[in-house]
Design a protein around this nucleic acid. Structure first.
Length: 416
RNA sequence: GGCGCCUUCGUCUAGCGGUCCAGGACACAGGGCUUUCAUCCCUGUAAUCACGGGUUCGAAUCCCGUAGGCGUCACCA
């Protein structure tokens, strides 16, 4: 089936509105990604809005972390707002609602009055379905707290209108709040934006993502050695399918293909195995020079390993994450050897000393010769040479490591 | 419990009434390549399309129920 890019929607303005009460997890970050993709696909604006209206739950540094995540992933925003700086606007609207008789004072707070016997419905852009609620099932709710700050409901409606948000793309845990928002839009005489409620990502235990699931934020994944390109690609494909069998896709390709119509209605489950595979795919297709800087950025101390960059082509096909590089390149110093392996080490030292030239072909024949002469196995060779049962192709690794370095390593092994 | 959303291999998904006794990817198993481990290549296991009723010549695809899962019922977002 031939697929075409979906047509552009005009005047698209979307927002990502995290509350600075913690570090966004993968699910929240994917919501940001989808908003970003939608904005860029339609040549619209992507707005970052900090929803800091709950003073008691503010976490210091959270806002910086949110920005760090978006910046690292290159999800750049076009406009920035902070709700705590817009208090007069919310207060004004709350008062307007009181004057209209649709809100009332309640112990220092302001409560919105739900009209009776109304049916509230909207067409949701995810799954193209109509969702409806009865107003009688909803209770009067607070819109302005006694500390003068608005609740999410009032603030988001006022801001989305003020900022001319065209599409509200958010997690589907907001579905049951949406009728409240629609009622507010109506009471204020405004038209509501298009709603798109994304199924949330679940953990392996089929419940909401949480700390228990390990890698809960993109920053944690980054610290484990995952590449942003892989994370973005993986997150995008959780719940979104651009059609066909395409899996490995760059951000520009995603922007070209993104369409709310292609987002699934069911909740996907986060499976780190697939992310690991995808990360490996990205590592393999990254240019060596770029991989070098990524490894250095991830683990600056790698620079202390002599000629480390020469190992990159060898390590590339054996890495799932950037963290794997060190393990591949560095020998295991405290491995214990049996008698046969010690003998192998001794004979190897003798053989290596006699080599006229330190080249992989010569290293290889010498090593295999000793191995067979002693009756050792290839696993023994790796155990002796690296301290691990397997590793980078030894003759190439040894050539890079150098004759002197290799011999002193083996002598160290023999002293244990 | 009320209200709402969801339901195709273990997982991500394709599928929009016939070409599907359901295709791809990850994971897993076996094989090839190979001086290790990988990469790469091939093969395989795995979904009676949650279940039960309809509609139709024909349903994974449409309709209705049931079950299960998830979400939400705060002066949190």
């Amino acid at each position: 089936m031939v697929r075409y890019s979906s047509p552009q929607v005009s005047h698209v303005r979307v927002r990502f509105p995290p509350s600075p009460t913690g570090i966004p997890h993968l699910g929240n970050t994917r919501t940001a990604l989808f908003n970003f993709l939608f904005a860029r696909h339609n040549n619209g604006k992507f707005i970052l809005r900090i929803e800091d209206t709950d003073r008691s739950r503010l976490v210091k540094g959270a806002e910086d972390k949110i920005k760090e995540i978006l910046n690292w992933l290159d999800l750049s925003w076009d406009e920035f707002y902070r709700q705590s700086e817009r208090l007069p606007l919310y207060k004004e609207k709350a008062n307007e609602l009181i004057k209209k008789g649709v809100a009332r004072k309640d112990e220092g707070a302001v409560r919105f009055i739900i009209p009776k016997g109304k049916k509230i419905s909207w067409e949701d852009a995810i799954g193209n379905k109509k969702i409806s609620f009865k107003s009688d099932d909803i209770e009067d709710f607070i819109i302005l707290k006694s500390d003068g700050y608005p609740t999410y409901h009032l603030a988001s409606v006022v801001d989305d209108s003020d900022m001319k948000i065209s599409h509200v793309i958010r997690g589907d845990e907001w579905i049951s709040s949406t009728p409240k928002h629609i009622l507010l839009y109506e009471a204020l005489g405004w038209q509501h934006p298009i709603f798109a409620h994304l199924p949330v990502i679940l953990g392996p235990d089929h419940t909401k993502l949480s700390k228990r699931h390990g890698a809960e934020s993109v920053l944690d994944l980054r610290d484990k050695g995952f590449l942003k390109e892989a994370i973005i690609n993986f997150m995008a494909l959780l719940g979104w399918n651009p059609g066909g069998d395409r899996e490995i896709m760059g951000i520009s390709e995603m922007i070209k293909l993104f369409d709310l119509q292609d987002i699934n209605t069911g909740s996907p489950i986060f499976d780190i195995k697939k992310l690991e595979w995808m990360n490996g795919e990205y590592i393999r297709k990254t240019q060596n020079s770029k991989l070098k800087s990524q490894i250095l950025e991830f683990d600056p101390k790698i620079a202390q390993i002599e000629k480390f960059e020469q190992y990159i082509p060898l390590a590339k096909t054996r890495m799932k994450t950037l963290a794997d590089f060190r393990v591949l390149v560095e020998n295991q110093k405290d491995a214990s050897l049996n008698e046969r392996q010690k003998k192998l080490a001794q004979e190897l030292v003798n053989a290596y000393r006699k080599l006229p030239e330190w080249k992989s072909a010569l290293i290889s024949t010498a090593t295999i010769g000793v191995r067979d002469q002693i009756g050792a196995s290839t696993q023994d060779v790796y155990a002796v040479l690296t301290g691990r049962p397997q590793g980078l192709p030894f003759e190439q690794k040894l050539e890079i490591q150098g004759q002197a370095g290799t011999i002193s390593w083996l002598e160290g092994v023999l002293k244990r």
